[in-house]
């Protein structure tokens, strides 16, 4: 951002890119209309913030009836919980194109507010959905792209020479430092944090060259909101991620429908937050009530739309595909 303050009112992305963005949004709506998936809208300003310790929500004080008093609401980091309430209420297949907000996430591949395409398909598992996600991505990239799916352990072994489950913690730490992690940063890092480092530093840059790479069968601590099953080789999460040209593009699950397991994961999240000195986040009891009422068997996925636009246009900095990135808002 070298321009003087005088030109900062201007959009950073030029009109051709904005036109491409608009066309891709129209393509998304066409894609789902053809499949009879209904477009929905859910609140951006939610009553609860996500409990995930790695995701920071913006807290917004909101006037609460009595003069001068406010309550905290939270800009949503994903529309997932509200969309699951729609599914439990019988919406059928649904999608949404919306802004999501994550505090502290700014860089060449992150903007604190970004556009997500999120959809849920009833009767699908994560395998069915990864095929559909790959199809939408290929359509939006306007090029024929094939895809290959491999397990998390397999890619870490193959691309980083690391057995993620058996490797002793010490060895993982040494490996991370060798790969450029500052030794001081090791403080407070657990196995999954170290795996995140190795994955994003070594594995991810090698993914998605000449094809889409899908990674699935995540270790259970990284299940997030996916079901955990035993596939014969031990417990794995029915979660997948999609990568193209080294960029993380989409994250999907065969959705966890068990309210008790959901609550247990949220409680674990809150304990981890407490241990890390992060603000506490309350449990969204309306999500739990919806799961209690019955979430249809479904799979859901969130796709980072701005990153897709980067890939389509060849831009390497996310700010270049946004009219007004964070710095210029």
């Amino acid at each position: 951002m070298k321009e003087g303050a005088g030109s900062h009112w201007r959009p950073l992305a030029g009109t051709p890119l904005l036109r491409l963005r608009a066309r891709m949004l129209a393509d998304i709506r066409g894609f789902f209309a053809a499949r009879d998936v209904m477009e929905v809208e859910t609140p951006l300003l939610g009553r609860h913030a996500v409990t995930d310790p790695h995701i920071a929500s913006f807290d917004v004080p909101v006037a609460d009836g009595a003069p001068g008093t406010t309550v905290l609401r939270h800009l949503q980091t994903s529309p997932e919980f509200a969309m699951k309430r729609l599914l439990a209420a019988g919406s059928g297949d649904i999608y949404q194109v919306c802004k999501a907000f994550r505090d502290g996430e700014a860089g060449s591949r992150h903007n604190p507010e970004f556009t997500l395409v999120e959809w849920y398909r009833t009767g699908f598992d994560h395998r069915d959905l990864m095929a559909e996600a790959a199809e939408l991505v290929a359509k939006l990239l306007a090029r024929p792209v094939s895809w290959v799916c491999r397990g998390y352990d397999e890619v870490l072994g193959e691309l980083a020479g690391l057995p993620p489950r058996e490797a002793p913690l010490m060895e993982l730490g040494e490996r991370a430092v060798h790969l450029g992690l500052h030794p001081d940063a090791l403080d407070g890092m657990d196995r999954d944090d170290l795996l995140d480092f190795v994955f994003s530093t070594v594995v991810q840059p090698q993914l998605g060259h000449g094809r889409l790479d899908v990674v699935d069968r995540y270790p259970p601590p990284q299940a997030a909101l996916a079901r955990v099953i035993d596939d014969g080789g031990g417990p794995v999460a029915e979660r997948f991620e999609l990568f193209y040209e080294g960029l993380e593009l989409a994250n999907g699950y065969h959705e966890l429908a068990d309210p008790h397991e959901q609550e247990r994961r949220m409680t674990t999240d809150r304990e981890r937050r407490r241990a890390r000195g992060l603000p506490d986040r309350t449990v969204d009891e309306r999500l739990l009530a919806a799961l209690e009422a019955g979430l249809p068997d479904c799979a859901g996925v969130a796709l980072g739309f701005d990153r897709l636009l980067m890939l389509r246009s060849g831009e390497t900095d996310i700010r270049r595909v946004l009219a007004f990135p964070y710095e210029r808002a």
Binding site: F197, F199, Q222
Partner: peptide
Amino acid sequence: ADLVKPGKGQAFTR
């Protein structure tokens, strides 16, 4: 300086 962060994981600054 750049942020390196998996959607559902630990955030790093490179």
